[in-house]
Design a protein around this nucleic acid. Sequence first.
DNA 1: GATATAATTTAGTCATGCCTAAATTAATTT
DNA 2: AAATTAATTTAGGCATGACTAAATTATATC
Lengths: 228, 228
Amino acid sequence: MLTQAAEDYLKSIYKLQEKGGKVSTGVLAQYLNVKPASVTGMLKKLKTMNLVNHERYQGVTLTSAGKAIALEIIRHHRLLELYLFRALGVPWDSVHEEAEKLEHVISEDVEARMDEFLGYPTTDPHGAPIPDKNGVVTQKAYFQMTTLHKGQSCVVAEVSDTDPALLRHLASFNLYPGTAFRVLDIAPFEGPFTIEIATENEEGQQAILGREVTKHIFVADVQDTEPT
Amino acid sequence: MLTQAAEDYLKSIYKLQEKGGKVSTGVLAQYLNVKPASVTGMLKKLKTMNLVNHERYQGVTLTSAGKAIALEIIRHHRLLELYLFRALGVPWDSVHEEAEKLEHVISEDVEARMDEFLGYPTTDPHGAPIPDKNGVVTQKAYFQMTTLHKGQSCVVAEVSDTDPALLRHLASFNLYPGTAFRVLDIAPFEGPFTIEIATENEEGQQAILGREVTKHIFVADVQDTEPT
DNA sequence: GATATAATTTAGTCATGCCTAAATTAATTT
DNA sequence: AAATTAATTTAGGCATGACTAAATTATATC
Ligand SMILES: [Mn+2]
Ligand SMILES: [Mn+2]
Ligand SMILES: [Mn+2]
Ligand SMILES: [Mn+2]
Protein backbone atom coordinates (compact mmCIF):
# COMPACT_ATOMS: atom_id res chain seq x y z
CA MET A 1 0.00 0.00 0.00
CA LEU A 2 1.10 3.52 -0.84
CA THR A 3 1.21 6.28 1.75
CA GLN A 4 -1.50 8.91 1.79
CA ALA A 5 1.00 11.53 0.65
CA ALA A 6 2.09 9.44 -2.35
CA GLU A 7 -1.54 8.89 -3.36
CA ASP A 8 -2.21 12.62 -3.20
CA TYR A 9 0.80 13.32 -5.40
CA LEU A 10 -0.40 10.87 -8.03
CA LYS A 11 -3.92 12.27 -7.94
CA SER A 12 -2.62 15.83 -8.33
CA ILE A 13 -0.26 14.96 -11.17
CA TYR A 14 -3.17 13.31 -12.97
CA LYS A 15 -5.39 16.35 -12.62
CA LEU A 16 -2.67 18.78 -13.70
CA GLN A 17 -1.48 16.76 -16.67
CA GLU A 18 -5.08 16.53 -17.96
CA LYS A 19 -4.86 20.19 -18.88
CA GLY A 20 -1.33 20.71 -20.09
CA GLY A 21 0.75 17.56 -20.45
CA LYS A 22 3.98 17.51 -18.46
CA VAL A 23 3.65 18.92 -14.94
CA SER A 24 6.45 21.11 -13.56
CA THR A 25 7.78 20.78 -10.03
CA GLY A 26 6.71 24.31 -9.16
CA VAL A 27 3.12 23.93 -10.35
CA LEU A 28 2.76 20.68 -8.47
CA ALA A 29 4.24 22.23 -5.33
CA GLN A 30 1.78 25.10 -5.44
CA TYR A 31 -1.14 22.76 -6.04
CA LEU A 32 -0.20 20.60 -3.06
CA ASN A 33 0.71 23.50 -0.73
CA VAL A 34 4.21 22.18 -0.40
CA LYS A 35 7.67 23.51 -1.32
CA PRO A 36 9.27 22.54 -4.65
CA ALA A 37 12.10 20.78 -2.83
CA SER A 38 9.61 18.46 -1.18
CA VAL A 39 8.12 17.65 -4.57
CA THR A 40 11.53 16.67 -5.95
CA GLY A 41 12.01 14.31 -3.03
CA MET A 42 8.68 12.60 -3.53
CA LEU A 43 9.11 12.34 -7.29
CA LYS A 44 12.32 10.41 -6.74
CA LYS A 45 10.48 7.89 -4.60
CA LEU A 46 7.58 7.60 -7.03
CA LYS A 47 10.05 7.05 -9.86
CA THR A 48 11.73 4.12 -8.12
CA MET A 49 8.25 2.61 -7.83
CA ASN A 50 7.72 3.13 -11.57
CA LEU A 51 4.68 5.30 -10.99
CA VAL A 52 6.00 8.44 -12.72
CA ASN A 53 8.28 9.43 -15.59
CA HIS A 54 10.62 12.16 -14.44
CA GLU A 55 13.77 13.68 -15.98
CA ARG A 56 15.43 16.41 -13.94
CA TYR A 57 14.21 19.89 -14.88
CA GLN A 58 11.84 18.34 -17.44
CA GLY A 59 8.59 17.92 -15.54
CA VAL A 60 6.70 14.78 -14.59
CA THR A 61 4.02 12.51 -16.08
CA LEU A 62 2.33 9.39 -14.78
CA THR A 63 3.21 5.92 -15.98
CA SER A 64 0.25 3.67 -16.72
CA ALA A 65 0.64 2.11 -13.27
CA GLY A 66 0.65 5.58 -11.70
CA LYS A 67 -2.38 6.62 -13.69
CA ALA A 68 -4.30 3.55 -12.56
CA ILE A 69 -3.69 4.43 -8.92
CA ALA A 70 -4.61 8.08 -9.48
CA LEU A 71 -7.90 7.08 -11.06
CA GLU A 72 -8.59 4.67 -8.24
CA ILE A 73 -8.24 7.47 -5.67
CA ILE A 74 -10.29 9.89 -7.77
CA ARG A 75 -13.00 7.25 -8.03
CA HIS A 76 -13.01 6.88 -4.25
CA HIS A 77 -13.21 10.63 -3.81
CA ARG A 78 -16.11 11.20 -6.15
CA LEU A 79 -18.13 8.18 -5.05
CA LEU A 80 -17.66 9.29 -1.44
CA GLU A 81 -18.79 12.83 -2.21
CA LEU A 82 -21.96 11.57 -3.83
CA TYR A 83 -22.55 8.97 -1.13
CA LEU A 84 -22.16 11.46 1.71
CA PHE A 85 -24.47 13.88 -0.10
CA ARG A 86 -27.20 11.39 -0.93
CA ALA A 87 -27.10 8.89 1.91
CA LEU A 88 -26.21 11.14 4.83
CA GLY A 89 -27.28 14.57 3.61
CA VAL A 90 -23.84 16.12 4.08
CA PRO A 91 -24.00 19.62 2.56
CA TRP A 92 -22.76 20.27 -0.97
CA ASP A 93 -19.98 22.53 0.24
CA SER A 94 -18.42 20.15 2.76
CA VAL A 95 -18.40 16.78 0.98
CA HIS A 96 -15.09 17.58 -0.72
CA GLU A 97 -13.14 18.10 2.49
CA GLU A 98 -14.66 15.00 4.05
CA ALA A 99 -13.93 12.84 0.98
CA GLU A 100 -10.35 14.14 0.89
CA LYS A 101 -9.63 12.20 4.08
CA LEU A 102 -11.81 9.14 3.49
CA GLU A 103 -10.59 8.45 -0.05
CA HIS A 104 -7.34 6.92 1.21
CA VAL A 105 -8.97 4.68 3.75
CA ILE A 106 -12.01 2.87 2.36
CA SER A 107 -11.76 -0.71 1.11
CA GLU A 108 -12.62 -1.93 -2.35
CA ASP A 109 -15.59 -3.67 -0.77
CA VAL A 110 -17.04 -0.46 0.66
CA GLU A 111 -16.34 1.30 -2.63
CA ALA A 112 -18.37 -1.37 -4.47
CA ARG A 113 -21.22 -1.18 -1.96
CA MET A 114 -21.50 2.60 -2.25
CA ASP A 115 -21.43 2.28 -6.03
CA GLU A 116 -24.31 -0.19 -5.90
CA PHE A 117 -26.30 1.91 -3.40
CA LEU A 118 -25.96 4.92 -5.70
CA GLY A 119 -26.99 2.97 -8.79
CA TYR A 120 -23.58 3.10 -10.51
CA PRO A 121 -23.46 6.88 -10.94
CA THR A 122 -21.31 8.63 -13.54
CA THR A 123 -20.87 12.09 -11.98
CA ASP A 124 -20.25 13.48 -8.50
CA PRO A 125 -22.29 16.30 -6.85
CA HIS A 126 -20.14 18.92 -8.61
CA GLY A 127 -20.56 17.36 -12.03
CA ALA A 128 -17.13 15.72 -12.23
CA PRO A 129 -17.04 12.30 -13.90
CA ILE A 130 -16.62 9.22 -11.71
CA PRO A 131 -14.13 6.76 -13.24
CA ASP A 132 -15.68 3.29 -13.49
CA LYS A 133 -14.27 0.34 -11.58
CA ASN A 134 -11.84 -0.37 -14.42
CA GLY A 135 -10.56 3.20 -14.36
CA VAL A 136 -12.37 4.35 -17.50
CA VAL A 137 -13.40 8.01 -17.36
CA THR A 138 -16.09 9.36 -19.65
CA GLN A 139 -15.44 13.07 -19.80
CA LYS A 140 -18.32 15.09 -21.24
CA ALA A 141 -17.37 18.04 -23.49
CA TYR A 142 -17.92 21.40 -21.85
CA PHE A 143 -16.75 25.02 -21.93
CA GLN A 144 -15.75 27.57 -19.35
CA MET A 145 -18.71 29.85 -18.67
CA THR A 146 -16.59 32.91 -19.53
CA THR A 147 -16.69 31.87 -23.21
CA LEU A 148 -20.48 32.34 -23.42
CA HIS A 149 -22.07 35.22 -25.31
CA LYS A 150 -25.15 37.26 -24.57
CA GLY A 151 -28.31 35.41 -25.50
CA GLN A 152 -26.88 31.92 -25.30
CA SER A 153 -28.53 29.29 -23.17
CA CYS A 154 -26.87 26.22 -21.68
CA VAL A 155 -26.75 23.75 -18.83
CA VAL A 156 -24.30 23.71 -15.93
CA ALA A 157 -21.98 20.73 -16.48
CA GLU A 158 -19.47 21.07 -13.65
CA VAL A 159 -18.29 23.47 -10.96
CA SER A 160 -15.04 23.65 -8.97
CA ASP A 161 -15.42 21.71 -5.74
CA THR A 162 -12.63 23.06 -3.59
CA ASP A 163 -14.03 26.36 -2.28
CA PRO A 164 -16.98 25.89 0.12
CA ALA A 165 -17.88 29.61 0.01
CA LEU A 166 -18.20 29.49 -3.78
CA LEU A 167 -20.40 26.41 -3.57
CA ARG A 168 -22.70 28.06 -1.01
CA HIS A 169 -22.91 31.09 -3.28
CA LEU A 170 -23.97 28.95 -6.24
CA ALA A 171 -26.44 27.02 -4.09
CA SER A 172 -28.09 30.32 -3.11
CA PHE A 173 -29.11 30.66 -6.78
CA ASN A 174 -29.97 26.96 -7.11
CA LEU A 175 -27.16 26.70 -9.61
CA TYR A 176 -26.14 23.03 -9.68
CA PRO A 177 -24.88 20.66 -12.37
CA GLY A 178 -27.90 20.06 -14.59
CA THR A 179 -29.39 23.51 -14.00
CA ALA A 180 -30.28 25.35 -17.27
CA PHE A 181 -29.79 29.10 -17.66
CA ARG A 182 -29.62 31.83 -20.30
CA VAL A 183 -27.18 34.74 -20.52
CA LEU A 184 -29.20 37.98 -20.41
CA ASP A 185 -26.24 40.33 -20.30
CA ILE A 186 -22.48 40.56 -19.95
CA ALA A 187 -21.18 43.84 -18.53
CA PRO A 188 -18.25 45.37 -20.46
CA PHE A 189 -14.61 45.40 -19.30
CA GLU A 190 -14.64 41.84 -17.99
CA GLY A 191 -17.76 42.62 -15.97
CA PRO A 192 -20.33 40.35 -14.36
CA PHE A 193 -22.83 38.08 -16.11
CA THR A 194 -26.56 38.51 -15.65
CA ILE A 195 -28.33 35.21 -16.18
CA GLU A 196 -31.84 33.83 -16.02
CA ILE A 197 -32.05 30.48 -14.29
CA ALA A 198 -34.75 28.09 -15.44
CA THR A 199 -37.00 27.08 -12.56
CA GLU A 200 -39.73 24.51 -12.31
CA ASN A 201 -42.59 27.03 -12.22
CA GLU A 202 -41.45 28.73 -15.42
CA GLU A 203 -40.79 32.05 -13.71
CA GLY A 204 -37.07 32.33 -14.38
CA GLN A 205 -34.96 33.57 -11.50
CA GLN A 206 -32.34 36.21 -12.30
CA ALA A 207 -28.81 36.16 -10.89
CA ILE A 208 -25.68 38.27 -11.26
CA LEU A 209 -22.37 36.39 -11.24
CA GLY A 210 -18.96 38.09 -11.01
CA ARG A 211 -16.10 37.13 -13.34
CA GLU A 212 -14.22 35.19 -10.68
CA VAL A 213 -17.28 33.04 -10.10
CA THR A 214 -17.88 32.35 -13.80
CA LYS A 215 -14.33 31.03 -14.17
CA HIS A 216 -15.29 28.17 -11.89
CA ILE A 217 -18.42 27.19 -13.80
CA PHE A 218 -18.37 24.93 -16.86
CA VAL A 219 -21.33 24.56 -19.19
CA ALA A 220 -22.60 22.27 -21.94
CA ASP A 221 -25.46 22.14 -24.47
CA VAL A 222 -24.79 25.73 -25.48
CA GLN A 223 -27.48 27.11 -27.84
CA ASP A 224 -28.17 30.52 -29.35
CA THR A 225 -31.63 31.72 -28.41
CA GLU A 226 -33.83 34.63 -29.38
CA PRO A 227 -33.68 37.55 -26.96
CA THR A 228 -37.02 38.03 -25.17
CA MET B 1 -5.47 17.12 16.29
CA LEU B 2 -3.77 14.03 17.62
CA THR B 3 -2.01 11.57 15.36
CA GLN B 4 -3.67 8.28 14.52
CA ALA B 5 -1.06 6.40 16.56
CA ALA B 6 -1.69 8.55 19.65
CA GLU B 7 -5.44 8.00 19.33
CA ASP B 8 -4.92 4.24 19.12
CA TYR B 9 -2.76 4.29 22.25
CA LEU B 10 -5.44 6.17 24.20
CA LYS B 11 -8.17 3.85 22.98
CA SER B 12 -6.13 0.79 23.94
CA ILE B 13 -5.23 2.13 27.37
CA TYR B 14 -8.91 2.79 28.01
CA LYS B 15 -9.93 -0.73 27.07
CA LEU B 16 -7.16 -2.35 29.12
CA GLN B 17 -7.67 -0.25 32.23
CA GLU B 18 -11.39 -1.10 32.20
CA LYS B 19 -10.47 -4.59 33.31
CA GLY B 20 -7.61 -4.16 35.71
CA GLY B 21 -6.74 -0.56 36.57
CA LYS B 22 -3.17 0.47 35.78
CA VAL B 23 -1.89 -0.80 32.43
CA SER B 24 1.68 -2.08 32.18
CA THR B 25 3.98 -1.21 29.31
CA GLY B 26 4.30 -4.85 28.30
CA VAL B 27 0.57 -5.52 28.17
CA LEU B 28 -0.02 -2.40 26.12
CA ALA B 29 2.83 -3.31 23.76
CA GLN B 30 1.38 -6.75 23.16
CA TYR B 31 -2.11 -5.34 22.60
CA LEU B 32 -0.82 -2.85 20.04
CA ASN B 33 1.61 -5.25 18.33
CA VAL B 34 4.53 -3.01 19.16
CA LYS B 35 7.67 -3.39 21.25
CA PRO B 36 7.71 -2.21 24.89
CA ALA B 37 10.38 0.36 24.08
CA SER B 38 8.06 1.99 21.56
CA VAL B 39 5.32 2.19 24.17
CA THR B 40 7.62 3.95 26.63
CA GLY B 41 8.39 6.52 23.95
CA MET B 42 4.76 7.25 23.17
CA LEU B 43 3.77 7.40 26.83
CA LYS B 44 6.31 10.17 27.33
CA LYS B 45 4.68 12.20 24.57
CA LEU B 46 1.18 11.57 25.84
CA LYS B 47 2.27 12.60 29.32
CA THR B 48 3.54 15.98 28.12
CA MET B 49 0.09 16.50 26.59
CA ASN B 50 -1.49 15.64 29.94
CA LEU B 51 -3.43 12.74 28.44
CA VAL B 52 -1.96 10.01 30.66
CA ASN B 53 -0.59 9.54 34.18
CA HIS B 54 2.66 7.63 34.04
CA GLU B 55 5.38 7.00 36.61
CA ARG B 56 8.35 4.96 35.40
CA TYR B 57 7.91 1.23 36.03
CA GLN B 58 4.47 1.91 37.53
CA GLY B 59 2.08 1.49 34.62
CA VAL B 60 -0.18 4.04 32.96
CA THR B 61 -3.73 5.37 33.34
CA LEU B 62 -5.70 7.97 31.39
CA THR B 63 -6.31 11.48 32.67
CA SER B 64 -9.85 12.77 32.24
CA ALA B 65 -8.76 14.56 29.06
CA GLY B 66 -7.24 11.33 27.75
CA LYS B 67 -10.35 9.37 28.63
CA ALA B 68 -12.56 11.84 26.78
CA ILE B 69 -10.53 11.37 23.61
CA ALA B 70 -10.50 7.57 24.01
CA LEU B 71 -14.29 7.52 24.32
CA GLU B 72 -14.64 9.79 21.31
CA ILE B 73 -12.66 7.35 19.15
CA ILE B 74 -14.50 4.33 20.55
CA ARG B 75 -17.79 6.06 19.74
CA HIS B 76 -16.61 6.62 16.17
CA HIS B 77 -15.55 3.00 15.89
CA ARG B 78 -18.79 1.48 17.12
CA LEU B 79 -21.09 3.84 15.26
CA LEU B 80 -19.12 3.11 12.09
CA GLU B 81 -19.38 -0.63 12.61
CA LEU B 82 -23.13 -0.44 12.99
CA TYR B 83 -23.51 2.01 10.12
CA LEU B 84 -21.46 -0.10 7.71
CA PHE B 85 -23.44 -3.17 8.76
CA ARG B 86 -26.89 -1.63 8.49
CA ALA B 87 -26.56 0.94 5.73
CA LEU B 88 -24.12 -0.80 3.40
CA GLY B 89 -24.50 -4.44 4.38
CA VAL B 90 -20.80 -4.90 5.15
CA PRO B 91 -20.46 -8.40 6.70
CA TRP B 92 -20.35 -8.84 10.45
CA ASP B 93 -16.80 -10.13 10.37
CA SER B 94 -15.24 -7.27 8.42
CA VAL B 95 -16.81 -4.14 9.94
CA HIS B 96 -14.19 -4.03 12.68
CA GLU B 97 -11.21 -3.80 10.37
CA GLU B 98 -12.95 -1.19 8.24
CA ALA B 99 -13.94 0.93 11.25
CA GLU B 100 -10.40 0.73 12.61
CA LYS B 101 -9.23 2.96 9.77
CA LEU B 102 -12.28 5.22 9.43
CA GLU B 103 -12.58 6.05 13.14
CA HIS B 104 -9.68 8.51 12.96
CA VAL B 105 -10.92 10.32 9.93
CA ILE B 106 -14.65 11.07 10.11
CA SER B 107 -15.89 14.50 11.17
CA GLU B 108 -18.19 15.24 14.07
CA ASP B 109 -20.83 16.12 11.49
CA VAL B 110 -20.71 12.71 9.82
CA GLU B 111 -20.68 11.08 13.26
CA ALA B 112 -23.89 12.94 14.15
CA ARG B 113 -25.54 12.06 10.85
CA MET B 114 -24.77 8.36 11.21
CA ASP B 115 -26.09 8.49 14.78
CA GLU B 116 -29.35 10.01 13.56
CA PHE B 117 -29.67 7.57 10.65
CA LEU B 118 -29.26 4.67 13.08
CA GLY B 119 -31.81 6.06 15.55
CA TYR B 120 -29.30 6.83 18.32
CA PRO B 121 -28.25 3.22 18.93
CA THR B 122 -26.68 2.01 22.19
CA THR B 123 -24.76 -1.07 21.05
CA ASP B 124 -22.62 -2.04 18.05
CA PRO B 125 -23.04 -5.22 15.96
CA HIS B 126 -20.94 -7.20 18.45
CA GLY B 127 -22.93 -6.02 21.47
CA ALA B 128 -20.42 -3.45 22.72
CA PRO B 129 -21.91 -0.25 24.15
CA ILE B 130 -21.69 2.93 22.07
CA PRO B 131 -20.70 5.93 24.23
CA ASP B 132 -23.17 8.78 23.77
CA LYS B 133 -22.12 12.11 22.32
CA ASN B 134 -21.08 13.33 25.76
CA GLY B 135 -18.88 10.30 26.34
CA VAL B 136 -21.24 8.51 28.72
CA VAL B 137 -21.07 4.71 28.44
CA THR B 138 -23.85 2.52 29.74
CA GLN B 139 -22.23 -0.84 30.27
CA LYS B 140 -24.68 -3.70 30.77
CA ALA B 141 -23.70 -6.33 33.35
CA TYR B 142 -22.63 -9.63 31.80
CA PHE B 143 -20.52 -12.72 32.44
CA GLN B 144 -18.01 -14.71 30.47
CA MET B 145 -19.74 -17.74 28.96
CA THR B 146 -17.20 -20.07 30.64
CA THR B 147 -18.82 -19.29 34.01
CA LEU B 148 -22.14 -20.88 32.98
CA HIS B 149 -23.31 -24.21 34.40
CA LYS B 150 -25.18 -27.05 32.80
CA GLY B 151 -28.87 -26.29 32.52
CA GLN B 152 -28.58 -22.51 32.64
CA SER B 153 -30.15 -20.39 29.93
CA CYS B 154 -29.12 -16.87 28.91
CA VAL B 155 -28.83 -14.32 26.14
CA VAL B 156 -25.68 -13.41 24.22
CA ALA B 157 -24.69 -9.90 25.34
CA GLU B 158 -21.40 -9.33 23.53
CA VAL B 159 -18.74 -11.14 21.52
CA SER B 160 -15.12 -10.24 20.73
CA ASP B 161 -14.96 -8.33 17.47
CA THR B 162 -11.34 -8.67 16.45
CA ASP B 163 -11.17 -12.16 14.93
CA PRO B 164 -13.14 -12.46 11.67
CA ALA B 165 -12.87 -16.27 11.65
CA LEU B 166 -14.46 -16.46 15.10
CA LEU B 167 -17.29 -14.16 14.01
CA ARG B 168 -17.97 -16.28 10.93
CA HIS B 169 -18.01 -19.36 13.15
CA LEU B 170 -20.59 -17.80 15.47
CA ALA B 171 -22.66 -16.59 12.52
CA SER B 172 -22.81 -20.16 11.21
CA PHE B 173 -24.85 -20.99 14.37
CA ASN B 174 -26.83 -17.73 14.20
CA LEU B 175 -25.22 -16.77 17.47
CA TYR B 176 -25.43 -12.98 17.67
CA PRO B 177 -25.93 -10.49 20.53
CA GLY B 178 -29.55 -10.94 21.56
CA THR B 179 -29.65 -14.65 20.71
CA ALA B 180 -30.93 -16.84 23.57
CA PHE B 181 -29.51 -20.30 24.31
CA ARG B 182 -29.41 -22.97 26.98
CA VAL B 183 -26.43 -25.04 28.17
CA LEU B 184 -27.21 -28.71 27.56
CA ASP B 185 -23.85 -30.07 28.58
CA ILE B 186 -20.29 -29.14 29.50
CA ALA B 187 -17.66 -31.79 28.78
CA PRO B 188 -15.20 -32.46 31.65
CA PHE B 189 -11.56 -31.33 31.74
CA GLU B 190 -12.25 -27.89 30.28
CA GLY B 191 -14.14 -29.48 27.42
CA PRO B 192 -16.57 -28.01 24.91
CA PHE B 193 -20.07 -26.69 25.63
CA THR B 194 -23.13 -28.20 23.98
CA ILE B 195 -25.89 -25.62 23.72
CA GLU B 196 -29.38 -25.35 22.33
CA ILE B 197 -29.99 -22.13 20.47
CA ALA B 198 -33.51 -20.70 20.52
CA THR B 199 -34.87 -20.25 17.01
CA GLU B 200 -37.98 -18.60 15.70
CA ASN B 201 -39.72 -21.83 14.81
CA GLU B 202 -39.27 -23.29 18.30
CA GLU B 203 -37.11 -26.16 17.10
CA GLY B 204 -33.94 -25.36 18.99
CA GLN B 205 -30.71 -25.77 17.02
CA GLN B 206 -27.86 -27.56 18.79
CA ALA B 207 -24.26 -26.38 18.62
CA ILE B 208 -20.96 -27.46 20.12
CA LEU B 209 -18.56 -24.70 21.11
CA GLY B 210 -14.94 -25.28 22.12
CA ARG B 211 -13.43 -23.63 25.19
CA GLU B 212 -11.46 -21.06 23.19
CA VAL B 213 -14.67 -19.91 21.54
CA THR B 214 -16.63 -19.63 24.79
CA LYS B 215 -13.98 -17.32 26.25
CA HIS B 216 -14.95 -14.76 23.63
CA ILE B 217 -18.67 -14.88 24.34
CA PHE B 218 -20.32 -12.84 27.12
CA VAL B 219 -23.83 -13.50 28.32
CA ALA B 220 -26.59 -11.83 30.37
CA ASP B 221 -30.00 -12.71 31.80
CA VAL B 222 -28.63 -15.98 33.18
CA GLN B 223 -31.39 -18.24 34.57
CA ASP B 224 -31.44 -21.74 35.98
CA THR B 225 -33.87 -23.88 34.02
CA GLU B 226 -35.24 -27.38 34.32
CA PRO B 227 -33.39 -29.94 32.27
CA THR B 228 -35.60 -31.35 29.51
C1' DG C 1 19.99 -10.66 51.97
C1' DA C 2 22.09 -12.06 47.77
C1' DT C 3 20.93 -13.64 43.24
C1' DA C 4 18.44 -14.79 39.26
C1' DT C 5 14.65 -13.45 36.23
C1' DA C 6 11.41 -10.48 34.23
C1' DA C 7 9.77 -5.92 33.05
C1' DT C 8 10.83 -1.42 31.74
C1' DT C 9 13.51 2.40 30.19
C1' DT C 10 17.45 4.51 27.71
C1' DA C 11 20.32 5.08 23.73
C1' DG C 12 21.10 4.91 19.20
C1' DT C 13 18.92 3.80 14.18
C1' DC C 14 15.91 3.99 10.42
C1' DA C 15 12.12 5.45 7.08
C1' DT C 16 8.59 9.14 5.97
C1' DG C 17 7.59 13.48 4.60
C1' DC C 18 7.93 17.84 5.42
C1' DC C 19 11.06 22.22 5.89
C1' DT C 20 14.91 26.09 4.70
C1' DA C 21 19.08 27.59 2.55
C1' DA C 22 22.47 27.04 -0.88
C1' DA C 23 23.94 25.31 -5.28
C1' DT C 24 22.93 24.18 -9.86
C1' DT C 25 20.67 24.34 -14.33
C1' DA C 26 17.61 26.42 -17.74
C1' DA C 27 15.44 30.27 -19.89
C1' DT C 28 15.31 35.35 -20.90
C1' DT C 29 17.28 39.81 -21.67
C1' DT C 30 20.39 42.82 -23.38
C1' DA D 1 27.84 35.74 -25.72
C1' DA D 2 27.25 37.35 -21.09
C1' DA D 3 24.38 38.45 -17.43
C1' DT D 4 20.18 38.31 -15.05
C1' DT D 5 16.19 35.80 -13.50
C1' DA D 6 13.49 31.80 -12.63
C1' DA D 7 12.99 26.94 -11.84
C1' DT D 8 14.81 22.95 -9.90
C1' DT D 9 17.78 20.06 -7.24
C1' DT D 10 20.98 19.10 -3.38
C1' DA D 11 22.20 19.23 1.42
C1' DG D 12 21.18 19.32 5.98
C1' DG D 13 17.34 19.42 9.70
C1' DC D 14 13.22 18.30 12.26
C1' DA D 15 9.13 15.59 14.05
C1' DT D 16 6.81 10.95 14.12
C1' DG D 17 6.80 6.46 15.28
C1' DA D 18 8.65 2.38 14.72
C1' DC D 19 12.97 -0.88 15.72
C1' DT D 20 17.23 -3.35 18.39
C1' DA D 21 20.55 -3.69 21.96
C1' DA D 22 22.09 -2.41 26.37
C1' DA D 23 21.27 -0.61 30.92
C1' DT D 24 18.35 -0.16 34.75
C1' DT D 25 14.78 -1.28 38.10
C1' DA D 26 11.47 -4.38 40.21
C1' DT D 27 10.07 -8.89 41.60
C1' DA D 28 10.75 -13.77 42.78
C1' DT D 29 13.61 -17.49 44.56
C1' DC D 30 16.65 -19.55 47.51
MN1 LIG E 1 -6.19 13.23 -0.13
MN1 LIG F 1 -16.36 16.83 -6.45
MN1 LIG G 1 -7.34 2.76 14.95
MN1 LIG H 1 -17.44 -3.99 17.61
